[in-house]
Amino acid sequence: MSQRITIALIQSHLHWENPEDNRKMFEEKINTVSKDTDLIILPEMFTTGFTMTPQKIEAEEGDITVGWMKSMAEKTESAIMGSIIFQEDDQFFNRLFFVYPNGETKTYDKKHTFTLAGEDKVYKAGEEKLILEYKGFKICPLICYDLRFPVWARNTEDYDVLVYVANWPKPRIEAWNTLLKARAIENMAYCVGVNRIGQDELGYDYPGHSAVYDVLGKQLAFSEGEEILYATLDKEHIVSTRQKLKFLEDRDDFSLKG
């Protein structure tokens, strides 16, 4: 019997710089998620929106949100992931948390901070790629602007699922659509993108377009509205396709230098 996981992508508006209201909102949405869901994915900076003034957010909010994620993961018996503002040693991070149902936590700090918005001047960039294992699947979580950099996502670890959480605006949404599909094809992995919708306090519009693509780039889920999308990922699809089409074995041999 093939291994499968069902994922839920929560595409939502966000309350600007208001962690408490966002936690309440997402808790209501999570409470409606199908009981057979294995992994719930939230957008980038899901408690605040994509703000460049993290000093407005109380430092303890990061720990409060992680505690909330653990509580929701235990309650739903599903893993939960998404990125938030996290303060550590007087530095701010755009940090993704992957919380297992048992409370175990893995983290990834956004590698490519968005220079166009000045994110590089406010948030400390990460240096380590994260590959985690969950229910027989190897997952690589990344954040928004990381999508534009294929070398960082390059599948040298034989991961099964690539996930991007984002606040990706309307003027460049075709790049989002195109690159998600490309990352799936070139890495022979499922590629999942979770974006927000609505307008933020700075006037930027976000059109959603959360989506899931299979190993060959076939779209399995897509939405422009405020809703929860579902997709079931099948390990056999990955294994059989890679055995038949050995494209990853022909990849160029090189390494990144710091």
Rank of each mutant, 00 (worst) to 15 (best):
T178Y: 09
K121S: 09
Q199L: 10
E127W: 03
G225T: 14
K121W: 06
V122F: 11
P54S: 06
R154A: 13
A175E: 15
H15K: 14
P101S: 07
G193T: 01
N187P: 01
P43A: 06
I185Y: 05
D38S: 13
R196N: 10
A221D: 10
R154H: 04
P54N: 05
L216Y: 05
I228W: 02
D38E: 13
E74L: 11
L142T: 02
H209V: 05
L245V: 12
N195D: 12
E227Y: 03
L216A: 11
Q11C: 02
D120N: 15
I139L: 09
K70I: 14
K138G: 00
M1P: 08
H237N: 13
T113V: 07
L96H: 07
V122K: 03
M69D: 06
A221W: 05
T178K: 14
D109P: 02
F149D: 08
Y164R: 06
L96S: 09
I238P: 00
Q243N: 14
I7D: 02
A153M: 07
F149K: 08
Q11N: 06
Y230R: 05
T232N: 04
P19Q: 06
P101C: 01
V194A: 02
W152V: 03
H13R: 15
E186A: 08
D205H: 11
V99F: 01
E119W: 12
D120K: 10
G126T: 06
S12L: 03
E119P: 01
S223Y: 03
E127Y: 08
